[in-house]
Amino acid sequence: MDFWRRFASNRGGVIGLVLLVIIVAVAATAPLLFPNNPWKMVSRPFLPPFENMKFILGTDTVGRDVAAGLAHGARVSLLVGLVSTVAALLIGIPMGALAGYFGGRVDDALMRITEFFQTVPSFALAIVIVAIFQPSVVSITLAIGIVSWPPVARLVRGEVMSLRKREYVEAAILQGLSAPSIILRQVLPNAISPIIVMASLMVASAILLESSLSFLGLGDPNLMSWGYMIGAARTVIRQAWWLSFFPGVAIVLTVLALNLIGESLNDALNPRLSRRRS
């Protein structure tokens, strides 16, 4: 209750939440709202928006419904954003936790690996991975996960390092509890709030990254996505501004919503900080 009050006290967070709920609702009901496959050519090409109310946002280069594309595209963006963030967390949390808990050589070795991934230009690496394994929703999600885990690892490492020195952890060690159970039961639950905040922001950047890849033609060719729509519309930007405008707005709104939520979460979960801010 306290959490909700604090969250709701931030206007941005509420706006973000409302936006996200709408986007998720559209994504969830896309097959009902637009039962046709979004790839289906339903009308004449280049139908401008608001002319024919059946296709309110107009049609694209080959006569596909832009509104249907946006709705179905929301599913892809959210899915890729979520799954790739989970993938990044699944790599980053263990790496950071092990490095922070054991320190010494383990820390050294794991941090070298993290450094390695922070040294390679990440977007370039994502491009190479997707191009090599051929663009598909799996390779894209994997590539985003692979390039975005290092910050998670660093964050978790820092948290675990400081928690490791707390008395209750020392006590657990003295009790002879195994390292995995200490990490999972005692340490990580106490590090969860910064991880949640970071994750919500990571979903946002994953959506941006997915759209950038699709824009370059490295999207999944069987799934309609916002980045694909902009990439495909780039060459006709002068004849048909709406083809790149609406999906762009959709991306901005979604990323904005997630960022607003992330900030409010940060305020709500770290009250010490938030009081200082206001």
Binding site: I230, R234, R238, W241, G248, I251
Partner: peptide, 18 residues
């Protein structure tokens, strides 16, 4: 700042050219 932060680079570039 938040709006800029949420805008895809390539889209901003395209709109700028336009």
């Amino acid at each position: 700042a938040l709006l800029f932060y949420a805008t895809p680079l390539f889209w901003a570039a395209l709109m700028g050219v336009l």
